[in-house]
């Protein structure tokens, strides 16, 4: 990886982590939506610096959609019934997960290799999505259709009940 891509990677990683922290810790839903959009921009930058421009474009659109939904007026609050103890255990588990992932990233022995693909290899990715792994693509498309239809039905049934 050359210096320009490496600098882009580190800067985009910082933007991604700041956005992720904002989405995790911001108190208001508008701030969380904005932070999610920022993390989408950072994620797209990381993908572009990793020569995955097509994935970056898709991520930018999808995370903008997520940010719009989180910050939108249809947002409702659902309080959990889980106790403080369980939430603290979950937070400690997340910290343990970070420690385990960092340990494996440090200790593992990786082989260096050169990347021969282009920066925006949409045709090759499309060949994989639509020819090689078409079942996985169809499964995700089905998930998307079911999610959007389910969300629309849920929202409409609530509006009708009021």
């Amino acid at each position: 990886m050359d210096s320009l891509h490496a600098i882009g990677f580190y800067v985009s990683s910082g933007v991604l982590l700041i956005g992720a922290l904002g989405a995790a810790l911001a108190p208001a839903r508008g701030q969380r939506g904005a932070a999610l959009a920022v993390s989408g921009v950072g994620l797209a930058g990381v993908y572009v610096s990793l020569s995955a421009g097509f994935a970056g474009a898709i991520a930018l659109v999808c995370y903008a959609g997520c940010a719009f939904m989180v910050a939108g007026p249809r947002y409702r609050v659902v309080e959990t019934v889980a106790g403080t103890m369980w939430r603290q255990l979950g937070a400690v588990g997340a910290a343990a997960l970070l420690a385990a992932l960092v340990y494996s990233a440090l200790r593992a022995d990786f082989v260096r290799a050169n990347f021969t693909g282009g920066a925006f290899d949409a045709r090759a990715v499309a060949r994989l999505l639509l020819a090689h792994d078409v079942v996985a693509t169809q499964a995700v498309a089905l998930l998307g259709v079911a999610a959007i239809a389910g969300a629309a039905v849920a929202w409409r049934s609530r509006d009708r009940a009021r």
Binding site: A59, R76, V78, D133, L143, A151, A154, S157
Partner: peptide, 26 residues
């Protein structure tokens, strides 16, 4: 890269479904 594309689309779908269910209950 292919899996990253599918993950982004799946994230959007799951957030839509989650917020839709929350909009019904919350």
């Amino acid at each position: 890269q292919e899996f990253a594309v599918l993950l982004a689309i799946a994230a959007l779908a799951l957030v839509a479904l989650g917020l839709g269910i929350a909009g019904r209950e919350g």
